[in-house]
Structure formats: C-alpha cells, structure tokens
C-alpha cells in the first residue's frame, strides 16, 4: 500500500522537474538573489513601475538571445545579430519615411533579417565554414551595408502611427514585453515539442550521429540562423518604434549581450545544450543588474564590471554543478 502512495506522490514531482530543469532552477535562484539584494539596497526597487521597466529594458536583449540560443544549441554562434538588426532597421525606417504602408515596411525589415540569416546558414551548412568566422565576416559586411545605404546618417522622423504600434501597452504591460513573451513561448514550444527542436539538440550534440539517424543537418542549421536573423529584425522594429529613428550603428555589441544571456541561462557553446526558460532568466538578470546599478548611481564602469562578474560566476556554478541534470 505504502508503495503505491509513494509512487503516485513522486510522479507529478518528477514530471515537474522534467519540465523545469535543475539548471533553470539555479538561474532562477540567481535572479531571486539579485532582486533581493537590490530590493534591500535601492528604495522603491520593487515598485511596479520599476519592475515593468526592467522587463522592458530586457526585452530587446531577450528577443536576440532567444535566436542566439537556438543557434548555440545547434553548435554554432551568430555574431552578426547587431548589424542584421541595423540593416533591417534602416531599410524599414527609410521605407516608412518614404510613406510605404506600415505592414509592408515591417515585412521588408523581417525579410532582411531572414535573408541575413539565410546567408549565414548557407555559408555554415553548405560551404562548411566555421560559424564564428562566417558571422564575424557578416558582422562587418551587414554593418557596412547599413552604413553605405544611409551614408552613415540616421533615418529620422518615423511616422507617429508606427511608433504607436510598439509603444502601446496591453494589460498594463508594454507591448514590446508581450511580443517577446509570445516569441519566448513559441521558442519554448519549438525546442520542446517539435522535431526541429529535437534536431537542433541532436545536430549540436553529435552531428555525425544525427546524420546517420537521418536528421536533415543543413536544413536544421540554416533554419536556426534564419530564426536568429528574424528575431534580430524584430528587435530592430521594437527599438526604432521606441526611438522614432533608425541609426546605422544601432545594435553595436548586441551579440555579446545575447550570448551572455544564453550562457547564463545554461546554453553550452559546445552545442547540444540550452534552455529557453534559462535564456529569458539570463536576459532578465542582465537587465536587473543594469537597472539596479543605475538606480544606485553606480558609474557605468562598475556596471560593466558587475556584468562581467555575473557571467563568470554563472559559468563557475555551471562547471561545479556539471553533469547533475
């Protein structure tokens, strides 16, 4: 009798643990500790307004980091997300200024993101170049294209109607946060529930074995880079909506923040490992740090230092707890 009750009691807990891994729990604890520290040090830190601020400030990085996570899981890396966003931003913006309807201009921005990702993916998957070098090359290339296209000048005067789309709010939350939350949900479903997600994990975990098992290696990798490009374009739309202008130098060093969020969240640069929940938590951790330190009037040099230490601490904890789920 006791046996049976024990069994039924253990079941749901195991299910829950399966959904929410030990590693994600660790990231969550890290976030809670950081929140608690700032809660004590900064008066009014837990005010609703500030918490929403943190989410809004984290949303662009979270958006990029989700795409980055999928690419990293596939065993690659995408250093070109910032310039991809810039190229997408200036093209959408100049169309908007020229009076092209919003949906068309936004679609064109997304298309740019997809094409940038496609080029990365094809060079990695079909030509067989190393992802780091490919995207290092396209990082400069895409940035140069954005600069050449605009002559180095910002595109100013976006229509108010367009700005309203990304500056609105729903249920008291900024639309940008809601958009990224929906993207995160989709990314989670992709990774956990679709063959493509399983293929990403397999390709990054052991490409040769995945090939023998019939996994479409090239298609999987290219899709990951295209998603990353698309999410960079989405981040670009959110940003130019907020700023009302598109600069060709927009998105400088975005790739590093995105990689940091993914790594804090448990993605392994060796491939085959990563978590959507973890990445979101990682992005929020970085956003919280920045928000809290700014409120404390800490110099930006120290903010940089704190961000660096957080990344290193996360990696050390990863190392120590390695192989325990």
């Amino acid at each position: 009798m006791t046996d049976i009750t024990e069994h039924t009691a253990a079941r749901p807990r195991a299910e829950f643990l399966h959904r929410f891994s030990v590693r994600d729990a660790g990231t969550l604890i890290g976030l809670v500790v950081i929140l608690a520290v700032f809660g004590v040090l900064v008066p009014g830190f837990f005010a609703e307004r500030n918490l929403i601020n943190i989410l809004q400030q984290s949303s662009i990085n979270a958006c990029l980091a989700l795409g980055m996570t999928l690419v990293i899981i596939s065993g690659g890396i995408d250093l070109s997300v910032g310039p991809t966003a810039a190229l997408s931003a200036v093209i959408s913006a100049s169309m908007l200024v020229a009076g092209v309807p919003f949906p068309l201009a936004i679609a064109a921005g997304f298309a740019i993101g997809l094409v940038c990702g496609l080029l990365n993916g094809v060079l990695v998957a079909y030509v067989g170049l190393q992802p780091f070098i490919v995207t290092l090359g396209t990082l400069s290339t895409y940035r140069a294209l954005a600069l050449i296209y605009t002559g180095g000048n910002p595109v100013l005067g976006l229509p108010a109607g367009f700005r309203a789309i990304f500056n609105g709010s729903l249920f008291g939350l900024p639309l940008a946060v809601i958009i990224v939350a929906v993207v995160a949900l989709i990314a989670w479903i992709i990774l956990k529930k679709t063959p493509f997600g399983e293929y990403l994990l397999a390709v990054g975990g052991n490409e040769e074995a995945a090939y023998i098992a019939g996994v479409p290696i090239a298609r999987t990798k290219i899709a990951a880079y295209m998603i990353s490009g698309l999410l960079a374009a989405l981040a670009a739309q959110i940003l130019i909506g907020r700023l009302g202008a598109a600069e060709p130098i927009l998105g400088n060093l975005w790739e590093l923040d995105a990689i940091a969020a993914a790594a804090i969240g448990g993605a392994s640069l060796m491939g085959g490992k990563g978590s959507v929940v973890g990445t979101i938590l990682g992005a929020v951790i970085l956003g919280t740090m920045r928000n809290g330190l700014t409120l404390m009037n800490v110099q930006s040099f120290y903010q940089l230092l704190a961000t660096g230490l957080i990344i290193l601490a996360a990696m050390l904890i990863d190392r120590v707890t390695r192989g325990r789920g």
Partner: peptide
C-alpha cells in the same frame, strides 16, 4: 561518434530517426 547524442535521453535518442512518426 556516429551513434548516440550523448546529452539526450534514451527515449529521444531512440526517436531521432522517426520524428516524423511521432509528430
């Protein structure tokens, strides 16, 4: 080198070649 995806579970390793059937 050619058989297993080390970090994935037994179930997922088993299902890798027949994902279309399971989805």
């Amino acid at each position: 080198r050619e058989g297993i995806v080390p970090l994935r579970s037994i179930s997922n390793n088993m299902a890798l070649a027949s994902m279309g059937v399971f989805a």
